[in-house]
Design a protein around this nucleic acid. Structure first.
Lengths: 204, 204
DNA sequence: CCATGTGAATGCGTTCACAGCC
DNA sequence: GGCTGTGAACGCATTCACATGG
Protein backbone atom coordinates (compact mmCIF):
# COMPACT_ATOMS: atom_id res chain seq x y z
CA UNK A 1 0.00 0.00 0.00
CA UNK A 2 1.31 3.41 -0.96
CA UNK A 3 1.39 5.85 1.96
CA UNK A 4 -0.25 9.22 1.20
CA UNK A 5 2.07 12.19 1.56
CA UNK A 6 0.11 13.86 4.37
CA UNK A 7 0.23 10.60 6.28
CA UNK A 8 4.00 10.47 5.82
CA UNK A 9 4.36 13.91 7.35
CA UNK A 10 2.24 12.92 10.31
CA UNK A 11 4.23 9.73 10.79
CA UNK A 12 7.43 11.76 10.76
CA UNK A 13 6.08 13.96 13.51
CA UNK A 14 4.82 10.94 15.41
CA UNK A 15 8.28 9.42 15.20
CA UNK A 16 9.76 12.53 16.78
CA UNK A 17 7.15 12.34 19.50
CA UNK A 18 7.92 8.70 20.21
CA UNK A 19 11.63 9.41 20.41
CA UNK A 20 11.05 11.99 23.13
CA UNK A 21 8.31 10.51 25.25
CA UNK A 22 9.39 7.91 27.75
CA UNK A 23 6.39 5.62 27.61
CA UNK A 24 6.52 2.02 26.41
CA UNK A 25 3.02 1.86 25.08
CA UNK A 26 0.64 4.36 23.52
CA UNK A 27 -2.94 4.29 22.28
CA UNK A 28 -4.43 6.19 19.38
CA UNK A 29 -6.53 8.13 21.88
CA UNK A 30 -3.42 9.22 23.68
CA UNK A 31 -1.75 10.26 20.44
CA UNK A 32 -4.87 12.20 19.58
CA UNK A 33 -4.54 14.26 22.74
CA UNK A 34 -0.86 14.91 22.01
CA UNK A 35 -1.28 15.93 18.40
CA UNK A 36 -4.85 17.01 17.83
CA UNK A 37 -5.27 14.57 14.93
CA UNK A 38 -8.27 12.25 14.99
CA UNK A 39 -7.95 8.75 16.43
CA UNK A 40 -9.24 7.39 13.16
CA UNK A 41 -6.61 8.96 10.97
CA UNK A 42 -3.90 7.93 13.40
CA UNK A 43 -4.99 4.30 13.23
CA UNK A 44 -5.19 4.55 9.47
CA UNK A 45 -1.74 6.09 9.20
CA UNK A 46 -0.23 3.36 11.34
CA UNK A 47 -2.09 0.69 9.43
CA UNK A 48 -0.22 1.77 6.28
CA UNK A 49 2.94 0.50 7.95
CA UNK A 50 1.52 -3.00 7.64
CA UNK A 51 3.47 -4.11 10.66
CA UNK A 52 2.29 -6.03 13.65
CA UNK A 53 2.64 -3.40 16.32
CA UNK A 54 -0.80 -2.82 17.72
CA UNK A 55 -2.59 -4.94 20.25
CA UNK A 56 -5.80 -4.60 22.09
CA UNK A 57 -4.06 -2.38 24.62
CA UNK A 58 -2.28 0.10 22.36
CA UNK A 59 0.89 0.29 20.31
CA UNK A 60 4.31 -0.87 21.36
CA UNK A 61 6.40 2.27 21.11
CA UNK A 62 9.63 0.53 20.24
CA UNK A 63 8.06 -1.52 17.47
CA UNK A 64 6.19 1.49 16.19
CA UNK A 65 9.34 3.59 15.96
CA UNK A 66 11.08 0.89 13.99
CA UNK A 67 8.12 0.36 11.70
CA UNK A 68 7.92 4.07 10.87
CA UNK A 69 11.65 4.29 10.23
CA UNK A 70 11.49 1.28 7.96
CA UNK A 71 8.45 2.41 6.01
CA UNK A 72 9.86 5.89 5.48
CA UNK A 73 13.32 4.56 4.64
CA UNK A 74 14.89 6.23 7.64
CA UNK A 75 16.45 2.96 8.76
CA UNK A 76 19.91 3.63 7.41
CA UNK A 77 22.47 6.34 7.95
CA UNK A 78 22.77 8.99 5.29
CA UNK A 79 25.84 11.08 4.66
CA UNK A 80 25.63 14.83 4.51
CA UNK A 81 28.01 17.72 3.90
CA UNK A 82 28.16 21.43 4.56
CA UNK A 83 28.85 23.97 1.84
CA UNK A 84 29.90 27.39 3.08
CA UNK A 85 31.84 27.52 6.34
CA UNK A 86 30.94 30.96 7.60
CA UNK A 87 29.21 31.56 10.92
CA UNK A 88 26.34 29.19 10.32
CA UNK A 89 28.18 26.48 8.40
CA UNK A 90 31.08 26.25 10.82
CA UNK A 91 28.65 26.08 13.73
CA UNK A 92 27.04 23.01 12.19
CA UNK A 93 30.48 21.40 11.79
CA UNK A 94 30.48 20.74 15.50
CA UNK A 95 26.79 19.95 15.91
CA UNK A 96 26.66 16.94 18.17
CA UNK A 97 23.68 15.25 16.53
CA UNK A 98 25.82 14.76 13.40
CA UNK A 99 28.19 12.62 15.38
CA UNK A 100 25.84 10.01 16.78
CA UNK A 101 22.55 10.33 14.89
CA UNK A 102 21.20 9.01 11.61
CA UNK A 103 22.85 11.75 9.58
CA UNK A 104 26.60 11.50 9.36
CA UNK A 105 28.50 14.63 8.52
CA UNK A 106 31.18 13.53 6.07
CA UNK A 107 32.75 16.73 4.73
CA UNK A 108 32.74 20.51 4.65
CA UNK A 109 33.45 22.80 1.70
CA UNK A 110 34.34 26.43 1.30
CA UNK A 111 35.59 28.51 -1.59
CA UNK A 112 38.09 30.19 0.70
CA UNK A 113 41.10 27.86 0.82
CA UNK A 114 42.48 29.69 3.80
CA UNK A 115 39.38 29.02 5.86
CA UNK A 116 39.49 25.36 4.91
CA UNK A 117 42.99 25.07 6.26
CA UNK A 118 42.53 27.08 9.43
CA UNK A 119 39.17 25.92 10.77
CA UNK A 120 39.26 23.11 13.28
CA UNK A 121 36.74 20.44 12.44
CA UNK A 122 35.89 16.83 13.30
CA UNK A 123 35.46 16.07 9.58
CA UNK A 124 37.71 16.78 6.60
CA UNK A 125 37.31 20.16 4.88
CA UNK A 126 37.91 20.79 1.20
CA UNK A 127 38.03 23.69 -1.21
CA UNK A 128 34.92 23.98 -3.35
CA UNK A 129 36.51 22.69 -6.52
CA UNK A 130 36.89 19.26 -4.96
CA UNK A 131 33.15 18.89 -4.43
CA UNK A 132 32.64 16.76 -7.53
CA UNK A 133 34.99 13.99 -6.53
CA UNK A 134 34.37 14.05 -2.78
CA UNK A 135 30.57 13.87 -2.93
CA UNK A 136 30.71 10.90 -5.25
CA UNK A 137 33.53 9.26 -3.33
CA UNK A 138 31.76 9.44 0.05
CA UNK A 139 28.26 8.88 -1.39
CA UNK A 140 27.02 12.09 0.19
CA UNK A 141 23.27 12.47 -0.35
CA UNK A 142 22.30 15.77 1.24
CA UNK A 143 24.03 19.10 1.70
CA UNK A 144 23.47 22.02 4.01
CA UNK A 145 23.85 25.12 1.87
CA UNK A 146 25.22 27.88 4.10
CA UNK A 147 26.80 30.28 1.62
CA UNK A 148 25.82 33.94 1.22
CA UNK A 149 22.76 34.76 -0.81
CA UNK A 150 24.60 35.78 -3.94
CA UNK A 151 26.53 32.51 -4.12
CA UNK A 152 23.67 30.16 -3.31
CA UNK A 153 22.55 29.34 -6.84
CA UNK A 154 26.03 28.68 -8.22
CA UNK A 155 26.93 26.54 -5.21
CA UNK A 156 23.67 24.61 -5.66
CA UNK A 157 24.49 24.06 -9.32
CA UNK A 158 27.85 22.58 -8.37
CA UNK A 159 26.21 20.33 -5.79
CA UNK A 160 23.66 19.11 -8.28
CA UNK A 161 26.21 18.32 -10.94
CA UNK A 162 28.23 16.53 -8.26
CA UNK A 163 25.25 14.23 -7.75
CA UNK A 164 23.64 15.57 -4.58
CA UNK A 165 20.06 14.39 -3.96
CA UNK A 166 18.81 16.92 -1.46
CA UNK A 167 19.64 20.45 -0.29
CA UNK A 168 18.76 22.29 2.89
CA UNK A 169 18.95 25.89 1.72
CA UNK A 170 19.60 28.58 4.33
CA UNK A 171 19.87 31.43 1.84
CA UNK A 172 16.84 33.66 1.25
CA UNK A 173 16.59 32.75 -2.42
CA UNK A 174 14.53 30.32 -4.43
CA UNK A 175 16.94 27.82 -5.92
CA UNK A 176 16.42 26.65 -9.44
CA UNK A 177 16.83 22.89 -9.43
CA UNK A 178 15.47 19.95 -11.43
CA UNK A 179 12.43 18.28 -9.86
CA UNK A 180 14.30 15.15 -8.82
CA UNK A 181 16.43 17.22 -6.45
CA UNK A 182 14.69 17.71 -3.10
CA UNK A 183 15.08 21.22 -1.75
CA UNK A 184 14.03 22.55 1.61
CA UNK A 185 14.26 26.21 2.47
CA UNK A 186 15.05 27.29 6.00
CA UNK A 187 14.38 30.96 6.40
CA UNK A 188 12.80 32.68 9.35
CA UNK A 189 10.60 35.05 7.37
CA UNK A 190 8.92 32.09 5.66
CA UNK A 191 8.25 30.53 9.05
CA UNK A 192 6.79 33.76 10.40
CA UNK A 193 4.51 34.07 7.42
CA UNK A 194 3.42 30.48 7.67
CA UNK A 195 2.59 31.05 11.32
CA UNK A 196 0.77 34.29 10.55
CA UNK A 197 -1.67 32.68 8.17
CA UNK A 198 -2.49 30.11 10.84
CA UNK A 199 -3.18 32.61 13.60
CA UNK A 200 -6.92 33.11 13.88
CA UNK A 201 -8.12 36.48 15.03
CA UNK A 202 -10.83 39.11 14.89
CA UNK A 203 -9.15 41.11 12.17
CA UNK A 204 -6.44 38.53 11.56
CA UNK B 1 -14.72 31.22 -1.01
CA UNK B 2 -12.62 29.50 1.61
CA UNK B 3 -9.05 28.87 0.43
CA UNK B 4 -7.88 25.26 0.95
CA UNK B 5 -4.81 24.91 3.15
CA UNK B 6 -2.58 23.40 0.46
CA UNK B 7 -3.50 26.28 -1.81
CA UNK B 8 -2.51 28.72 0.91
CA UNK B 9 0.90 27.14 1.18
CA UNK B 10 1.38 27.37 -2.57
CA UNK B 11 0.29 30.99 -2.59
CA UNK B 12 2.80 31.73 0.14
CA UNK B 13 5.56 30.24 -1.94
CA UNK B 14 4.31 32.03 -5.01
CA UNK B 15 4.44 35.30 -3.09
CA UNK B 16 8.06 34.67 -2.25
CA UNK B 17 8.74 33.95 -5.90
CA UNK B 18 7.04 37.15 -7.01
CA UNK B 19 9.02 39.19 -4.53
CA UNK B 20 12.29 37.94 -5.99
CA UNK B 21 11.71 37.82 -9.73
CA UNK B 22 11.94 41.11 -11.52
CA UNK B 23 9.23 40.59 -14.10
CA UNK B 24 6.11 42.73 -14.32
CA UNK B 25 3.86 40.09 -15.72
CA UNK B 26 3.66 36.32 -15.42
CA UNK B 27 1.49 33.60 -16.92
CA UNK B 28 0.33 30.39 -15.28
CA UNK B 29 2.47 28.49 -17.77
CA UNK B 30 5.52 30.39 -16.63
CA UNK B 31 4.73 29.74 -12.99
CA UNK B 32 4.32 26.09 -13.83
CA UNK B 33 7.86 25.95 -15.16
CA UNK B 34 9.16 27.70 -12.06
CA UNK B 35 7.38 25.58 -9.51
CA UNK B 36 6.40 22.28 -11.10
CA UNK B 37 2.75 22.74 -10.15
CA UNK B 38 0.14 22.34 -12.87
CA UNK B 39 -1.15 25.38 -14.76
CA UNK B 40 -4.64 24.37 -13.75
CA UNK B 41 -4.05 24.37 -10.04
CA UNK B 42 -2.18 27.65 -10.27
CA UNK B 43 -5.11 29.31 -12.00
CA UNK B 44 -7.46 27.80 -9.46
CA UNK B 45 -5.33 28.97 -6.54
CA UNK B 46 -5.23 32.49 -7.88
CA UNK B 47 -8.94 32.44 -8.59
CA UNK B 48 -9.55 31.95 -4.87
CA UNK B 49 -8.17 35.43 -4.36
CA UNK B 50 -11.24 36.77 -6.17
CA UNK B 51 -9.31 39.77 -7.33
CA UNK B 52 -9.09 41.25 -10.76
CA UNK B 53 -5.46 40.56 -11.55
CA UNK B 54 -5.41 38.34 -14.59
CA UNK B 55 -5.83 39.40 -18.14
CA UNK B 56 -5.57 37.67 -21.41
CA UNK B 57 -1.82 38.14 -21.31
CA UNK B 58 -1.01 36.88 -17.84
CA UNK B 59 -1.05 38.19 -14.29
CA UNK B 60 0.11 41.58 -13.15
CA UNK B 61 2.81 40.77 -10.64
CA UNK B 62 2.25 43.81 -8.49
CA UNK B 63 -1.48 43.27 -8.23
CA UNK B 64 -0.98 39.57 -7.63
CA UNK B 65 1.42 40.17 -4.76
CA UNK B 66 -1.03 42.52 -3.11
CA UNK B 67 -3.95 40.18 -3.63
CA UNK B 68 -2.08 37.28 -2.03
CA UNK B 69 -1.00 39.41 0.92
CA UNK B 70 -4.53 40.60 1.43
CA UNK B 71 -6.15 37.18 1.14
CA UNK B 72 -3.65 35.62 3.54
CA UNK B 73 -3.82 38.56 5.94
CA UNK B 74 -0.19 39.44 5.40
CA UNK B 75 -1.07 43.02 4.60
CA UNK B 76 -0.23 44.45 7.97
CA UNK B 77 2.89 44.51 10.13
CA UNK B 78 3.02 42.09 13.00
CA UNK B 79 5.13 42.52 16.07
CA UNK B 80 7.46 39.80 17.25
CA UNK B 81 9.85 39.25 20.13
CA UNK B 82 12.79 37.04 20.93
CA UNK B 83 12.98 34.91 24.06
CA UNK B 84 16.45 33.69 24.96
CA UNK B 85 19.35 35.92 24.02
CA UNK B 86 22.14 33.40 23.65
CA UNK B 87 24.07 32.90 20.41
CA UNK B 88 21.02 32.39 18.23
CA UNK B 89 18.66 34.84 19.90
CA UNK B 90 21.13 37.70 20.03
CA UNK B 91 22.03 37.11 16.38
CA UNK B 92 18.38 37.63 15.44
CA UNK B 93 18.33 40.87 17.44
CA UNK B 94 20.30 42.50 14.66
CA UNK B 95 18.68 40.69 11.74
CA UNK B 96 18.11 43.35 9.13
CA UNK B 97 14.81 41.99 7.79
CA UNK B 98 13.25 42.76 11.18
CA UNK B 99 13.97 46.43 10.68
CA UNK B 100 12.29 47.07 7.36
CA UNK B 101 10.07 44.05 6.64
CA UNK B 102 6.56 43.02 7.61
CA UNK B 103 7.67 41.65 10.96
CA UNK B 104 8.75 44.23 13.45
CA UNK B 105 10.98 43.13 16.27
CA UNK B 106 9.64 44.88 19.36
CA UNK B 107 11.48 43.31 22.31
CA UNK B 108 13.93 40.73 23.56
CA UNK B 109 13.80 38.71 26.78
CA UNK B 110 16.31 36.74 28.79
CA UNK B 111 16.25 35.25 32.27
CA UNK B 112 19.77 36.51 32.84
CA UNK B 113 19.40 40.12 33.95
CA UNK B 114 23.08 40.75 33.40
CA UNK B 115 22.82 39.81 29.73
CA UNK B 116 19.80 42.01 29.30
CA UNK B 117 21.80 44.98 30.55
CA UNK B 118 25.02 44.33 28.69
CA UNK B 119 23.87 43.31 25.21
CA UNK B 120 23.66 46.04 22.65
CA UNK B 121 20.43 45.91 20.73
CA UNK B 122 18.27 48.05 18.44
CA UNK B 123 15.20 47.10 20.50
CA UNK B 124 14.57 47.17 24.25
CA UNK B 125 15.53 44.09 26.25
CA UNK B 126 13.78 42.90 29.38
CA UNK B 127 14.18 40.27 32.06
CA UNK B 128 11.86 37.33 31.60
CA UNK B 129 9.53 38.24 34.44
CA UNK B 130 8.39 41.30 32.51
CA UNK B 131 7.11 39.23 29.59
CA UNK B 132 3.51 39.37 30.73
CA UNK B 133 3.17 43.11 30.68
CA UNK B 134 5.43 43.85 27.71
CA UNK B 135 3.80 41.41 25.30
CA UNK B 136 0.37 42.77 26.06
CA UNK B 137 1.58 46.34 26.04
CA UNK B 138 3.22 46.12 22.61
CA UNK B 139 0.63 43.73 21.13
CA UNK B 140 3.33 41.22 20.26
CA UNK B 141 1.86 38.31 18.33
CA UNK B 142 4.73 35.93 17.64
CA UNK B 143 7.88 34.96 19.50
CA UNK B 144 11.10 33.35 18.46
CA UNK B 145 11.92 30.82 21.17
CA UNK B 146 15.70 30.57 21.39
CA UNK B 147 16.27 29.22 24.89
CA UNK B 148 18.09 25.97 25.68
CA UNK B 149 16.17 22.72 25.35
CA UNK B 150 15.50 22.28 29.04
CA UNK B 151 13.92 25.71 29.39
CA UNK B 152 11.84 25.65 26.23
CA UNK B 153 8.59 24.35 27.69
CA UNK B 154 8.53 26.67 30.68
CA UNK B 155 9.38 29.67 28.51
CA UNK B 156 6.63 28.67 26.11
CA UNK B 157 4.17 28.43 28.99
CA UNK B 158 5.06 31.96 30.04
CA UNK B 159 4.63 33.22 26.49
CA UNK B 160 1.26 31.56 26.18
CA UNK B 161 -0.07 32.96 29.40
CA UNK B 162 1.22 36.36 28.30
CA UNK B 163 -1.06 36.08 25.29
CA UNK B 164 1.30 35.14 22.47
CA UNK B 165 -0.40 33.73 19.34
CA UNK B 166 2.46 31.95 17.60
CA UNK B 167 5.86 30.50 18.46
CA UNK B 168 8.85 29.67 16.27
CA UNK B 169 10.53 27.00 18.34
CA UNK B 170 14.25 26.43 17.80
CA UNK B 171 14.63 23.89 20.58
CA UNK B 172 14.61 20.17 19.74
CA UNK B 173 11.54 19.47 21.82
CA UNK B 174 7.84 19.12 21.12
CA UNK B 175 6.11 21.94 22.91
CA UNK B 176 2.85 21.26 24.63
CA UNK B 177 0.50 24.08 23.70
CA UNK B 178 -3.24 24.53 23.28
CA UNK B 179 -4.46 24.14 19.70
CA UNK B 180 -5.17 27.83 19.20
CA UNK B 181 -1.45 28.61 19.60
CA UNK B 182 0.39 28.17 16.31
CA UNK B 183 3.75 26.49 16.74
CA UNK B 184 6.44 25.95 14.16
CA UNK B 185 9.50 23.89 14.87
CA UNK B 186 12.80 24.80 13.29
CA UNK B 187 15.24 21.97 13.72
CA UNK B 188 17.73 20.71 11.21
CA UNK B 189 17.21 17.01 11.89
CA UNK B 190 13.52 17.36 11.04
CA UNK B 191 14.43 19.02 7.79
CA UNK B 192 16.92 16.31 6.92
CA UNK B 193 14.34 13.63 7.59
CA UNK B 194 11.72 15.41 5.58
CA UNK B 195 14.18 15.63 2.70
CA UNK B 196 15.16 11.99 3.06
CA UNK B 197 11.65 10.69 2.61
CA UNK B 198 11.37 12.74 -0.58
CA UNK B 199 14.57 11.47 -2.14
CA UNK B 200 13.71 8.73 -4.62
CA UNK B 201 16.26 6.02 -5.12
CA UNK B 202 16.89 2.38 -5.96
CA UNK B 203 17.10 1.31 -2.33
CA UNK B 204 16.01 4.65 -0.94
C1' DC C 1 -16.06 -0.68 28.34
C1' DC C 2 -11.46 -0.35 26.14
C1' DA C 3 -8.51 -1.15 22.14
C1' DT C 4 -6.78 -2.11 16.71
C1' DG C 5 -7.72 -2.66 11.87
C1' DT C 6 -10.04 -2.10 7.61
C1' DG C 7 -13.45 -1.91 3.70
C1' DA C 8 -16.95 1.54 2.43
C1' DA C 9 -18.71 6.06 2.35
C1' DT C 10 -17.89 10.82 2.49
C1' DG C 11 -15.94 15.05 1.37
C1' DC C 12 -12.48 17.95 -0.28
C1' DG C 13 -8.73 19.40 -3.47
C1' DT C 14 -7.13 18.79 -8.07
C1' DT C 15 -7.83 18.20 -12.77
C1' DC C 16 -10.62 18.57 -16.73
C1' DA C 17 -13.04 20.92 -20.21
C1' DC C 18 -14.84 24.58 -22.05
C1' DA C 19 -16.45 29.60 -22.26
C1' DG C 20 -14.77 34.06 -23.13
C1' DC C 21 -11.26 37.16 -24.69
C1' DC C 22 -7.02 39.02 -27.15
C1' DG D 1 -2.51 30.07 -31.28
C1' DG D 2 -2.09 32.37 -26.67
C1' DC D 3 -4.35 33.51 -22.06
C1' DT D 4 -7.72 33.57 -17.54
C1' DG D 5 -11.59 31.83 -15.01
C1' DT D 6 -14.84 28.42 -13.41
C1' DG D 7 -18.46 24.81 -12.89
C1' DA D 8 -18.26 19.78 -13.23
C1' DA D 9 -15.89 15.43 -12.93
C1' DC D 10 -12.59 12.90 -10.81
C1' DG D 11 -9.60 10.82 -7.49
C1' DC D 12 -7.55 10.56 -3.28
C1' DA D 13 -7.35 11.31 1.89
C1' DT D 14 -10.15 11.29 5.81
C1' DT D 15 -13.88 9.69 8.37
C1' DC D 16 -17.23 6.36 9.43
C1' DA D 17 -18.86 2.01 10.93
C1' DC D 18 -18.28 -2.26 12.16
C1' DA D 19 -15.60 -6.73 12.92
C1' DT D 20 -12.51 -8.69 16.16
C1' DG D 21 -10.34 -9.22 20.54
C1' DG D 22 -9.41 -8.45 25.68
Amino acid sequence: MEIPDPAKERLLYLLKLLEKGGTLTLTSTHIESLTGWSRDSIRKDISYLAADIGSTSGYDVFALKNAIKKALHLDRKRKICIVGLGRLGSAYLNFSAFQYGDFELAAGFDANVNRVEILSSPVPLYPTYKMGEIIGWFSIEISLLCVPEDQAQSAADKLISAGIRGIVNFAPVILKAPPEIAVRNVYIIDDLRSLSIRIPSENN
